[in-house]
Amino acid sequence: MRVKELKLVITFHTTADAMAMEKCCKEANAPGRLIPVPRAISSGCGLAWCADLSEKDGLLEVMAKVGLKQEDIHKCMV
């Protein structure tokens, strides 16, 4: 297994929201990728957006621009 790192994990209410996240991040060249929600987190949707902790403000800005709402924002070992 890979060595885990502390990461930013954004969760969503629906798969459609997770896919909207991937799309808006791609269009904005924002970093990160979709991952299965880690067990440590309780989440609605099974997909989450994972990125470096330092990217939090930039990602929230991208989401705000398209009106996308997260379920929650976590820091966890991924």
Binding site: T15, A16, A18, M19, A20, E22, K23, L34, I35, P36, C45, G46, L47
Partner: peptide, 22 residues
């Protein structure tokens, strides 16, 4: 199967379905 995993094939389905939604 869309939305039932985060592997390449599942994400491929989710992307196609989301594009159709859009």
């Amino acid at each position: 199967n869309a939305g039932r995993g985060a592997h390449a094939a599942s994400l491929s389905a989710s992307r196609v379905i989301y594009n159709a939604r859009e």
